[in-house]
Amino acid sequence: MSELLIEVLKAASSMFLSALVILGLYLYARSKAPKNPAGEKLKVYACGESYPLQKASIADANLFVAIWKDVFKPYYRRIREKGHTGVLSDWLMWMILFLTMFFVLLLLMGGIP
């Protein structure tokens, strides 16, 4: 178990070092940016029109997961609308399914004498 922890610590250190390198690159890039931008440099444009800064950032609903949500749209529809209704009769269906599955497994695995 101690050897395992050492391996884990090595993995953690390498991840930490990688994160430090990325942070270093980010800070270097920041240092190259103008120190005190003003006026036009701070404005955000979309199609030539000025755009509020708040709207220009990605909404959290799409952050990191826009593509994922699109790819798995049918799956999400199924688990959110059909399998996740919260309606008690639907839940009862799950329970009956479980009990059926359990007793079928019992019969397959040894049967009731």
Partner: peptide, 28 residues
């Protein structure tokens, strides 16, 4: 033992389902 084994199998299936549903719905 066969009853317990059936239950363990169901536990694995429900565990996998739980992990997948939990993760898929967590991120959105």
């Amino acid at each position: 033992a066969f009853i317990l084994n059936a239950l363990y199998l169901v536990a694995i299936a429900m565990g996998v389902l739980s992990a997948l549903i939990g993760a898929f719905l967590l991120i959105v």
